[in-house]
């Protein structure tokens, strides 16, 4: 844990042990840092903006706004749309994680029938295209439902959240099963020999150790579902991609605006997901060292 990093011996040092005999210690991971923007990145981004914006500007006659001006004008609306994507991703992740945890625990539970059912459900939802599941949710779930005489409307975006939470649930179920299976069987034996019940063993000994193992794949899953939320535009939810195409239409459908507008949407998702990706990588490396 806190062992000092091995000092690198100079070849000149007398009596230095042969390097091949030294125990292998992977280098400690650097403390997590936000991805640094280096000069090369700035050049790349500026270049992209110039090429896209420049091309747009060249095609734009004096009366029309440049691409950057269009984006700036519609920025609040576009950001509202992006916020909606984030909201859907967070909600479907929360819903899917809770359901997936339950499904995963059933998959490794003691009841044979439930185990089979949970396994089948996991495989079914894990191996279906996300878009198909989304359609499935949009058309199978009623647009309103009645509870105790109150009719509650179920807006499209809520149905989309449910649709996205299905693949999250299935993948989470596998993450749980995999993490539990990856623990050495000695942990179970030790708990059993101390007269812990199966439930106590699971909640006090197995799952707390699994959280660490589950975190990186779980964050990865979140990143994926965030990017998948744009699929909701296909079923008419007013998220960023839908709004982008509406903005494009409102600006007269100018072909020169296509690349900048969709490029901007892409950039938003990249800036949101890339740090998550980096943080996941950092956690993975840290946990590998601490196993």
């Amino acid at each position: 844990m806190s062992a000092p990093p091995p000092r690198r011996l100079e070849p000149s040092e007398a009596g230095a042990p042969l390097a091949v005999l030294l125990p292998f210690r992977p280098p400690p991971p650097a403390a997590f840092a936000w991805p640094r923007l280096r000069l090369v990145h700035l050049v790349g981004i500026a270049g992209l903006v110039l090429v896209v914006g420049g091309a747009a500007h060249a095609q734009a006659s004096g009366a029309r706004l440049s691409a950057l001006e269009v984006i700036w004008r519609w920025l609040p609306l576009l950001m509202w749309g992006f916020g909606f994507n984030i909201l859907m991703s967070v909600l479907s992740m929360a819903l899917g994680t809770a359901a997936g945890l339950g499904l995963g625990l059933l998959q490794i539970g003691e009841n044979r029938l439930l185990r089979r059912v949970a396994w089948a459900a996991t495989q079914f939802f894990r191996n279906s295209p996300w878009l198909v599941l989304l359609f499935f949710a949009m058309f199978m779930i009623p647009f309103q439902f009645t509870v105790f005489g109150h009719t509650m409307p179920l807006p499209d975006w809520v149905k989309a959240v449910i649709g996205f939470s299905l693949p999250v649930m299935a993948n989470m179920s596998e993450i749980v099963r995999g993490a539990v299976a990856s623990l050495p069987s000695g942990q179970w034996e030790a708990a059993e020999s101390l007269a812990f019940s199966r439930r106590q063993t699971m909640w006090r000994i197995i799952l707390p150790q699994c959280v660490k193992r589950m975190l990186p794949p779980w964050m990865n899953l979140y990143s994926l579902i965030t990017m998948a939320t744009v699929q909701a535009s296909i079923v008419g939810v007013s998220e960023m991609l839908t709004l982008t195409s509406q903005v494009h239409a409102a600006e007269g459908g100018r072909p020169d605006l296509l690349a900048p507008l969709y490029g901007f949407a892409m950039l938003c998702f990249f800036l949101y997901c890339y740090p998550i990706e980096r943080f996941t990588l950092y956690l993975e490396r840290r946990f590998q060292l601490n196993q």
Partner: peptide
């Protein structure tokens, strides 16, 4: 009580 070869501490 039981003690294992691999300790199996939590």
């Amino acid at each position: 009580g039981m003690v294992f070869q691999q300790y199996n501490l939590f």
